[in-house]
């Protein structure tokens, strides 16, 4: 059913593209390409990294910042207190805002106010990648949506296009706001956009993402990382067997961060 509808939509989009010319064709082309890549990866044993957040376990540790601090220290994320210019890769937000379409006025206060971990969703159909005029942000083969800060021109179209507020622009030189610079990971310059990269640099060395590792170290076990293309993986089994949410599902971005409430 679902796939039938998709096929129909694709055909319809193709017909529309013919009518609209090359410009529209390229949007649809990119989408189809992304799908076929995902499909290939699924068939050919490629990886599709994803993260699952157990919001209840996470919220049980009130005020815990282990994952946030680990991420921000590892990646030299500056600490800018001013809310208008702050840079964040992973942070907490109240469930009421994270799941605007799932939480309502009769949801219990605990549920509505529950702090939920948010970060880049590493969408399978990422709008930020679609709008970037230089391919400075792109989808890597195994899932993570990546940033190439060398190529970024600082137009902030991706910030505008991201439905999750997951992207931060460097309004000023971040260096004075980094307490201790870790030379293993270059900080960014002013004028470029940055965000969570799923720790692709750690994955390359066979390590778990810093947030997941920190969460496990704390004993919270609220974060689960794995390969959605592996039917035997723990994350795939959890997502299959329980009701999980992805943010703003209706936008068709297909996020790869799964939440259980």
């Amino acid at each position: 059913m679902e796939s039938g509808r998709r096929e129909f939509l694709k055909t319809a989009a193709g017909a529309a593209a013919l009518g609209l010319g090359a410009g529209a064709a390229s949007f649809v082309g990119a989408e189809a390409l992304a799908r076929s890549r995902a499909g290939q990866a699924a068939a050919g044993g490629g990886k599709r990294y994803a993260l699952a957040v157990d919001t209840k376990k996470c919220a049980e540790r009130e005020g815990c910042r282990a994952c946030i601090d680990a991420c921000h220290v590892t990646h030299n994320v500056p600490r800018i207190e001013n809310r208008e210019e702050e840079i964040k890769w992973v942070w907490k937000e109240e469930a009421e805002w994270v799941f605007q379409d799932r939480v309502h006025e009769y949801s219990g206060a605990e549920l509505r106010r529950r702090p939920v971990l948010v970060l880049c969703n590493h969408c399978d159909n990422p709008p930020c990648v679609r709008v970037c005029p230089t391919q400075a942000t792109f989808k890597s083969a195994d899932g993570p949506v990546m940033m190439d800060p060398h190529r970024c021109i600082g137009c902030r179209y991706c910030v505008v296009g991201c439905p999750y507020g997951a992207r931060s622009f460097n309004w000023k030189d971040p260096r004075p706001y980094i307490e201790h610079v870790d030379p293993a990971y270059p900080p960014r310059a002013r004028g470029v956009v940055e965000k969570c990269t799923m720790c692709s640099e750690r994955l390359a060395h066979g390590l778990l993402p810093a947030c997941v590792e920190a969460c496990a170290r704390e004993g919270a076990g609220a974060l689960l990382f794995g390969d959605m293309n592996d039917p035997e993986s723990e994350i795939r089994k959890r997502v299959e067997s329980s009701l999980s949410l992805r943010r703003k599902e209706h936008l068709g971005t297909r996020p790869q961060v799964y939440y259980t409430l």
């Binding site: 005029p133 230089t134 970024c152 021109i153 600082g154």
Partner: peptide, 28 residues
């Protein structure tokens, strides 16, 4: 558009790495 860029020196990246899926590329 130029004065709005965070990295104005790299503005030609739009032409160096043409990206037909981006509306901004078409606008330029």
């Amino acid at each position: 558009v130029f004065v709005d860029m965070g990295q104005p020196m790299r503005v030609l990246n739009v032409m160096l790495h043409p990206t037909p899926q981006s509306v901004m590329f078409w606008d330029v």
